[in-house]
Structure formats: C-alpha cells, structure tokens
Design a binder for these strands. Sequence first.
DNA 1: CGCTAAATGGACTGGAGAGTCCAGGGTAGC
DNA 2: GCTACCCTGGACTCTCCAGTCCATTTAGCG
Lengths: 202, 202
Amino acid sequence: MRGQLTAKGKATRNRIIEGAAAVVREKSVASATLDDVMARTRTSKSQLFHYFPAGKDELLLAVAQFEADQVLEDQQPYLSCLGSWEAWEQWRDVVLKRYEAQGDWCPLGSLFLQVGRSTPGARAIVIELMRQWQESLAAGVRALQAAGRLPADVDAEARAGVLLAAIQGGVSVLLSTGRSDLLRIALDQGIADLRRAGCAVT
Amino acid sequence: MRGQLTAKGKATRNRIIEGAAAVVREKSVASATLDDVMARTRTSKSQLFHYFPAGKDELLLAVAQFEADQVLEDQQPYLSCLGSWEAWEQWRDVVLKRYEAQGDWCPLGSLFLQVGRSTPGARAIVIELMRQWQESLAAGVRALQAAGRLPADVDAEARAGVLLAAIQGGVSVLLSTGRSDLLRIALDQGIADLRRAGCAVT
DNA sequence: CGCTAAATGGACTGGAGAGTCCAGGGTAGC
DNA sequence: GCTACCCTGGACTCTCCAGTCCATTTAGCG
C-alpha cells in the first residue's frame, strides 16, 4: 500500500479505522482482535494487511490518531473562544458531559498502553495532543487577560497546565473508579482558582 | 491452596508476588508472561498455579494490591502529618521525587487496564486507594484549619479532591508524554491555590 | 475491449503462552 | 522413622490469533 489508493480504497481504509475504533471502545484494546475488526467492517484479513502492511500495530496507531483528533474536536467550538467566564462554564459543561457519557473507558489511554512507549509514533500522538490542549487553554487565559477580566501577571501557561492536569486526573479517577465527582470538583475548583489567581496569598 | 500454608509456602508466595511485580514494572503488563515470572522467581508453573489457582488474573490481582499498598506507604510519614505549610512542601517533594524516579511507567494503572473493569476485585483496590488518599489529604486540610492557618469555611473534601486530581493528572501526563513539569506545576499551584482558598473571588 | 493494477476472499501456518497433570522430593508432626 | 500432606519439576495439551499466500474479482484506462 503506497500512494495509489482509489476512492474505493480510501473508503475501505477509513471504514477499517472507524470500525477498529468502535471495536476497541466496546471491548478493550487487549481483547480486540483482528477478527473482531474484520467482522465489524465486513473485510477480510488480506484487506487489513493490504491497508496496514505493518499489521495490528499500524492499525492501532491509526486508531489512536483518529481518537486523538476526536478529543479536541469534541470540545469545539467552546475550546477556541474562552474569552469570557460564561464561555469557560460552557466549555466545562461540554467536557464534563463528554467524559461522563464516555463512561469508564478511555480509548486513547488504553491504546497508548497497548501500542506502548515502545513505538515512537504513539507517544508523539499523545505529546502533540497534550501540547495543543494546553496551548488552547493558555490562549483562553490570555483572552481573559486581554479582556481585562484577569490580572496581567497571571502565568497563562501554568494555569493551563493546572487545568489540563485537573481534567486528566479527574478523567483518570473516573475511568478507574467510576466516580465522576472528582472530575467535576477539579474542573469547578480549577476555574474558581483561576478567578482567584490574582489574589494575594494570605 | 486454602489456609494451610507453611512458613516456606508463604515465603514462596510472597517471592512470586514481588517477582511478578518486578517483571510487570520492567516489561509491561501486556507483555509479562508467566514464564517471565517463573524465570525471575525460580519457580515452576505448578507452583504458580498452586499458590494462585485461578491463574494469571489472580496473580495480577495480588500484584495490584501489593502496588496499591506501596503507593500510600511511599508518601509516609509526610502524608499523615500535614499540619503545617512546611509539611505540605515536604510531602510535595516526596511525591514529585517518587514519580519522577518511577519514570514513565505506572504499574497500577496498567495493571488495572489489564485485569480490567471486568473483574470486581481490581476496581475495588483502586477505589479504596483513591478513597484513602483523598481522605488523608482532607485530614491535612482540616489540620491546617485546626491550626488556624486556613479559614474554617474551606471545603476540605473538595480541596483534597482537587489535589488528588492534580496528582493523578500530572502523573498521567508524565506517563504518557514523559513531561514531569505538569506534575510539578499542578502540585505547586494546587498548594498555592489552597493557601488562597479563603480569598474572595474578584 | 483487453490489459494492468488494485481490491478482496479465505484457507493455512507458526508460534506464543495459559492452564493441566502426574510423578517425585521435602517436611512437619506423631 | 513413618505417614500424611504440602511443595516442586517439567513435560504436555489446547486454544487463540497475528501474519502469510495465492487465487479470484473488480475497477481504472487506453
């Protein structure tokens, strides 16, 4: 499989990726087999290896990229226009809803664990996702500052880091314990702390 | 294997658990095999199944419990006496050092993903760990209040939740990207936000 | 219409690794 | 020292699943 993919070929390839993503979400990465993907996407094994010559790892990597793209997209348009406190609240609601709906499974996290640190590609995907996420949040903080709603001496990058960690931590607890309250608390307090960020330490 | 374990038997069983934990740390859960454990612990397959009749899952569950116990223990004695700001800083240092040293692998997280939500036992272990962790932090916050270093109207449970999420998130980012700065930022800002917690919102 | 390359079907292989079984060695208690 | 009952060794089976191979069909293109 080099550049020459017909329209049909592209369609099949995408069908495989999306089907594989669905399979991974339903079962776990560990228990998702190529046969599951074949059944779900009505393809044969030769097709899988035709479009992903390096086999399962290559397919899972494509799925990981697919899921990573999804993460930020699901937060739009809110993530891109965090210029007012109302916008932050809306964004909060979307994130909360998304992860509560997703229930207790993180396709990306488990994919990462499976494909592993071993492969350079997987890590690159996650690193880039985190970078963009933090950058978007930092932009939001700066927008608040520009609008005069937050003191200029607040460190936007750091506050974005705190919020990102809050989400990751909340989701991580949600996944492992089923408790969604920590995610909500972490987000709410994170935003509240942001409002207070200019305050002097007592 | 029911109650009757001789001293020798107990020793072997523990050797297996610790050896398995080491194997899981070195490789990943996914690629850790019973043969690896056998080699590492100089045991035979029949021993493994003698001490863990239900097989690999039961062994991994024991390893998970072993690792979970470790987590809180590694934070002692600091976690238990968070009555002053200095104590909080010391605790911060210990946590930071522990996870930076651990590098990019979380035995518990990956174990959980492997043994999975499916088995009730694994989830129970994590839930209990999180509960104790949050409770210890909340006790620290209350200690600060009792010492008059923090206003009484601060919600100790919520602040503990924020800090727990901050750690989990920071570690999670550390594991997946190798960046330890987020963990440090999240912890530092988390403690700083705690100091500011009584402040009025601007 | 025919040629070439891509797309597909599906049987087959090879290996890894969990779990089984039984025989033999050790040890505690009488 | 005898006699149960743990404890241990290691060969064996059995299943699952990634990856291979080749035969066949379909589609672009002159």
